[in-house]
Amino acid sequence: MTISFGVAGVGPDVLLVHAGVADARMWEREVRELAAAHRVITVDLRGYGETPLEAGAKYSDAGDVLAVLDEVGASAVMAVGASYGGYVVQQMVSREPARFARVVLLCAPTDNVEPDDELRALWGAENKLLEAGDVDGATDLTVRRWIGPEADDEARELLRVMQKRAYDVQLAAGDDVENEEYPVEPEKMTMPVRLITGGHDFAFFTDSADYLAERLPAAERIHLPWAGHLPTLERPTEASALIR
């Protein structure tokens, strides 16, 4: 399997891992800004963007991204993960903590925290639409619920395109795929970690950040009252500054 990834710029390594409703295109602004002083690495996880997902595949998203870092010779990595991408980053850092210098987690889930009822209801509605073959309806639901009120029409359309692509690829692969998840071990994440959440996001992600903040040795907690689940698409200038 070849994981689609991009490398831009020269300097200290920065890794950007996309959300589970998006792909590497969500980071276009950040790549442009960071590449002036860093080597910026982006990936499309399996089933997203330009990376396919084969029926019957057995893989690990965290393992895939670690393999990309090996391929490009990345070290002392500053890793940024959005939503599910932040969960992938936690798995990677727990497995190879010496490789990472800093971490930023944007509205990310974690282990040992239960989803709230509102999020479970959303997942149920999404699955019902997909089971009925209404991919457009599921995509519309994603755009309504996963991006905050500050997002403009361009950001909403980008999210629509990215999520529709993910549905098309993942539904074609079917249910017979297995993604191994490595355990998240906060005590191993001793580097500085910035935890960012949004006031319009689901409680699960705020609860996850609070859980990590209590257990990480060097955590910084930031809550954005204006933000939904994807702050870099909602207020790009403000959210990108928090990453920089």
Rank of each mutant, 00 (worst) to 15 (best):
G85W: 01
G86D: 07
Y87C: 05
Y87N: 05
Y87R: 09
V89R: 07
Q90T: 04
Q90R: 07
Q90F: 04
Q91K: 10
Q91H: 09
Q91N: 01
Q91W: 03
M92Y: 00
V93A: 13
V93T: 06
S94I: 07
S94C: 10
S94G: 06
R95N: 10
R95Q: 11
R95T: 15
R95A: 09
E96I: 08
E96G: 07
P97E: 06
P97L: 03
P97C: 11
R99Q: 11
F100M: 04
F100Y: 03
F100P: 00
F100T: 04
A101E: 13
R102I: 01
R102K: 13
R102Y: 01
V103W: 00
V104E: 07
V104W: 11
V104Y: 03
L106I: 15
A108L: 11
A108G: 09
P109S: 03
P109T: 06
P109H: 10
T110W: 11
T110H: 08
T110D: 04
T110C: 11
D111Y: 05
D111H: 14
D111Q: 14
N112D: 15
N112Y: 12
V113I: 13
V113C: 12
E114P: 02
E114T: 12
E114M: 14
E114R: 14
P115S: 11
P115Q: 08
P115L: 13
P115K: 12
D116P: 01
E118Q: 14
E118S: 14
E118A: 15
L119V: 08
L119A: 01
R120F: 02
R120A: 13
A121E: 15
L122W: 15
L122D: 10
W123P: 12
W123N: 15
W123F: 14
W123A: 15
G124F: 04
A125L: 14
A125G: 11
N127H: 12
K128L: 15
L129I: 04
L129S: 08
L129W: 01
E131K: 03
E131S: 04
E131R: 03
A132E: 13
G133Y: 02
D134Y: 12
D134A: 07
D134E: 09
